[in-house]
Design a protein around this nucleic acid. Sequence first.
DNA 1: AAGCGATATGTTCGAGCAGACATATCGCGC
DNA 2: GCGCGATATGTCTGCTCGAACATATCGCTT
Lengths: 124, 124
Amino acid sequence: MLRAMTASDSTSTTIRLRLLLGQDGTKLGPGKADLLQGIGELGSISAAGRRMGMSYRRAWALVEEMNAGFAAPLVASSRGGAAGGGARLTPEGAAVLARYRALEAEVANAGAEHIAAIAAMLRS
Amino acid sequence: MLRAMTASDSTSTTIRLRLLLGQDGTKLGPGKADLLQGIGELGSISAAGRRMGMSYRRAWALVEEMNAGFAAPLVASSRGGAAGGGARLTPEGAAVLARYRALEAEVANAGAEHIAAIAAMLRS
DNA sequence: AAGCGATATGTTCGAGCAGACATATCGCGC
DNA sequence: GCGCGATATGTCTGCTCGAACATATCGCTT
């Protein structure tokens, strides 16, 4: 997948969460979460994609997928204008991102013991 | 992937865990965990693979990957003999599986609130 | 010694996916 | 109105992964 390493990779063992939501099968994992965060910070789908080393094509497809899966769109976009356009998180998008981050933190905390036990059995 | 549904799919929203272990990048997710469990229950790589709708080729490759990633092999196999051969979990394999299942349970419990909050925002 | 069933492993073929390339369109500023 | 920069979307192609097929080998049992 060629994901850029983030500065938060302090421990060598990481846990990744992927949610399979509803019976329609919309997925929410680290990629979409990072993308949401990037859009929130940069105000642009293309800028967020660039920062992750992802093509605009793919970033846009992920946004489309998220907007289709939830009752309200998570990202609102506009074309044209001074900056050419832009995108920002809707309140629902910000809420989903916050919940996902909180979930990550809670999970890392609750599972730390088991994770450490498994990591201790690794090859040298 | 064509995964068989398990009877434990009571809620429509499920969470999947994938561990990225060490800097060598050995992965441990639901597929390998289910395979370990199948081998433990059925005493055979091929039988475990069959039950999951997975080719023996692939099941064997996953076992190989796990055995290579951990300090001690998780699965011990034998060729020939009365039943043609077989495989069983080593104590380390059983320990890793138990830890992973415990991690799943703990995570599902700890994250239930955030997961429910996200699921509540889904389309219809 | 012959057969059985499972492990072990090479090879080949197809589908699906990700990336690259190409446009169309929009709305503000100059 | 012309250009800019970003959204929006179609198309194509290469690559990777998995499925399928094919064998070899092993050790007990009959």
